[in-house]
Structure formats: structure tokens, C-alpha cells
Computed example of a mutant assay.
Amino acid sequence: MTGRKENLRDFRSHENAGVVKFGNNYKCQVKGYGKVTNGQFIVNRVAYVEGLQHNLISVSQLIVGTGNQVVFNDEGSITSKFETNEVLLKSKRYGDMFTLDIKPIVGKPSVCVLSKASNDVCWLWYSRLSHLNYQNLNKLVIEDLVRGLPVLKFDNDTLCAACEIGKQHRKGHPIVIDSKIVEPLLKSEVAQTMIEFTKKIEMSMKKNVRRIKSYNGSKFKNNVMDSFLMGKGISHNFSSPYTP
């Protein structure tokens, strides 16, 4: 229990949460419960007692339902995971008093000082919050907007396959530009005019001409025009021949 409400995160007030009785028979009302964390180690269900001058904690609160174990020695205490023996917290002993050496996060923490969440925890909350991106997920942590959300830095280098597919865009069809020359041309002007027109289209549109179509007449069939089109890789299509 604590008398400092600012140290509690995810605080929930209760009207009839109980009464704490001290050695001098003085009683204080429990105002609610929250959790204390330093970003890596979390103590759940910490009672807020208004007016309490010292923080108190029981060993059972660190062990029961947490999967942790606490070992005491002459130097202090070691809190670790029961299954993996991963050390979570080391605390020193002062005289006959065993303390819990934890610096709780107060207010809005900076993301850079938070411990990084494991990949399993990242994917768990990423899925729970409908594939919310990690930048906004960290904002929820800083602003303390979601109850139960661990105070950790969420980051994952692995892309979500479903989101990656959903954000793909279908490739568009190639643009076909249809331009025409409708002015009457003399036979001697056809080749040069067609060459200049082709170059003008490529310059203005910044695209290569792939094919042209012309009237199936003799003035559009000459060596100069055929040589230019062959060098540019442009196909020359003719209209159907006139049939009386």
C-alpha cells in the first residue's frame, strides 16, 4: 500500500475498499487500487491509503499469482521468475528492514527509457488492438489510456503479413496515347512530318511511341519512314485497303 497516488498507474477508485488499522489504533480508508511499475517489474493491486507516510508491501503480493519467487539473504532480496530464474529485481537490506528497490514511473514516461517488450507481448497487443501501428501503441502507453496495457516499449522488426497484403496496390494498366494528324499532306512531306510528329510526342509526353497507324496509301510507304521506325522499334500499322 502507498500514500502517493502519483506513483500508481491504471488507478481505480473504490468507495468501500476497506479500512487499514495501524498500531496506534488509527484507521485510514482505502481509496482504491492501482499498480506500480518501473517499466519492467510490476506490482499489481497496490492499495492507495490517503495520508500514509510510508510504502508497505507483503511478500505474498510479489508471489501469489505472479509466477515469481523471492529469495532473502544477508544482503537483501532477489525477485525472479520461478520457471526461468530470470532476475527481475534486486533489493538491499537496511538493518532488519527488507526494502523493495524500485523507482516507479511517475507521470508520462519517455519511450526511450522504457524496457522493450518481448515479441510475444508485442504481437499479443498488436492483435488485441486491431493491428494498431506501434507508434500509436506507444502513445497509448505514454498517455496511460488503456487499462492493463503493460508499460513497455512496443517495437517489432517483423512485418505483419496480413497488413502487408492489405496495403498493396494493384498495378494500373499502361496508358495508351492516341494522337492523329488530320492535315492533308503532300507525298514529299509525309516522311518528314511523321518523323517530327513522333519526336514531338515523345518529348512532350516523356514516353516512347510504340506503334503508329496510317492510311494504307503509297505516300506512307517509303524507305525514309521505314528506316526511322525500324531504328526506334516502332511498329507501323495500316488501315484496311479500299475495296470498291
Rank of each mutant, 00 (worst) to 15 (best):
D96A: 10
V121L: 02
I42S: 08
D96I: 15
K103M: 04
L152P: 07
N119T: 13
I42Q: 04
W125H: 10
S80F: 09
F154Q: 02
Y126S: 01
N138K: 09
L100A: 01
V49K: 08
K81E: 13
V141K: 02
I78T: 15
V49T: 03
I105E: 05
Q69N: 08
P109Q: 06
D144P: 10
G76M: 02
Y33V: 11
P150H: 00
V71D: 13
E75I: 13
A47D: 03
N156E: 10
K139H: 11
R128Q: 03
Y134K: 07
F72N: 13
R128C: 00
W125M: 03
N55Q: 11
Y94E: 15
S110C: 13
N133V: 00
H54C: 10
G65K: 06
L137S: 04
S127F: 07
K108D: 15
N73M: 01
K139E: 15
A47M: 12
T37M: 08
Y126W: 06
G34D: 01
K103A: 09
V146C: 05
K153L: 14
I142C: 10
D144N: 13
T37Q: 03
R93Y: 01
S91T: 12
I42T: 14
K92D: 04
K139R: 13
C112K: 15
N136Y: 06
D120N: 15
V64M: 09
W123N: 11
P150K: 01
G34S: 05
P104S: 12
E143C: 12
G76L: 07
P104A: 11
Y33D: 05
E143H: 06
E143V: 08
V151N: 00
L149P: 03
D120H: 09
S80K: 15
N68L: 11
C122Y: 00
K90Y: 07
S60P: 10
H54P: 04
R147K: 14
L62A: 03
V113K: 06
G65S: 07
R147V: 14
K116L: 10
F98G: 08
N85V: 04
Q61E: 10
N68A: 08
L152M: 11
F82D: 06
S130H: 15
W123R: 12
Y126R: 01
V43S: 02
Y48V: 14
N85D: 11
V70C: 09
G34V: 07
N68I: 05
A47C: 08
V43W: 01
K81P: 07
Q135V: 07
D74P: 08
I142E: 08
D155R: 13
I142Q: 04
K90H: 06
L140A: 08
S110D: 14
R128T: 02
G67Y: 04
L140G: 10
